[in-house]
Design a protein around this nucleic acid. Structure first.
Length: 221
DNA sequence: ATATAGATGTACT
DNA sequence: GTACATCTATATT
């Protein structure tokens, strides 16, 4: 499948978890499927930093069948099943042995909206803002499931890529992560990042800890 | 607008 | 057995 998008280089995925979380908001997610090219701008993500982060699946530091990929090299997909029905996509970060990852929580759909709608099978048809405004929604829209577990996210068919042109300047909001009530102190860490005022964010009204101007993607010079 | 229940498979954080 | 990095359908302000 032909795609005008330039996949990121593996070396671009070797930044620290925090740097990469910021960087993701400059990038897009691409899936080259049999039903066409699916593309969305990443507008929301959360970082999980085991083994000390009580919110992380890697809390405690003991690899399991599910979490093993988090302990490997950066840039691979950690995909897991949640509530028996939905998948969530993470980008593994940091060197081997450091089980960090970034959960991709929302996208702004750019190409392949018709396929996304079909994949989502909504009874009540609503606006496109609901196509990929959540970690389970975006995986369903993009056809991401356990087959993508361990997939290198710089390679076809599923990869991170640079935008075709730089985004207009935007602000990055940071705040507490969603739905980790069990995580004790860690629940308040401002480890959620999103494009401020973007309509495709999953929980736009959640509290903002900091707001700052986005750094441009170094890719554009 | 907000609130609630229910679906469903896997890990036990 | 229980909790889960979720979402939808239905019901009520």
């Amino acid at each position: 499948m032909k795609s005008p998008y330039v996949a990121v280089a593996p070396t671009e995925l070797q930044k620290s978890t925090e740097e990469l979380a910021y960087q993701l908001l400059n990038w897009v997610l691409v899936n080259e499927t049999a039903d066409g090219l699916l593309v969305g701008r990443i507008v929301e993500c959360e970082m999980y930093q085991g083994p000390d982060d009580r919110g992380a699946h890697s809390y405690g530091g003991k690899p399991t069948d599910r979490t093993r990929v988090m302990y490997g090299s950066p840039g691979y997909a950690y995909v897991y099943l949640i509530y028996g029905m939905y998948y969530c996509l993470n980008v593994v970060t940091e060197a081997e042995g450091v089980p960090h990852a970034i959960l991709v929580r929302a996208l702004e759909p750019l190409h392949g909206l018709d396929t996304m709608k079909r994949n989502r099978m909504l009874k009540t048809t609503r606006n496109t803002a609901e196509l990929t405004s959540g970690p389970g929604k975006l995986c369903q829209a993009f056809g991401i499931d356990r087959r993508h577990y361990g997939h290198p996210l710089w390679a076809s068919p599923l990869y991170l890529a640079h935008a075709l042109t730089p985004w207009p300047s935007f602000q990055v909001a940071r705040g507490p992560r969603i739905n980790i009530a069990y995580a004790g102190e860690a629940r308040q860490y401002p480890w959620r990042f999103w494009v401020y005022n973007n309509p495709h964010v999953s929980k736009p009204t959640n509290s903002v800890t900091t707001l700052e101007q986005a750094l441009p993607d170094p890719f554009w010079g």
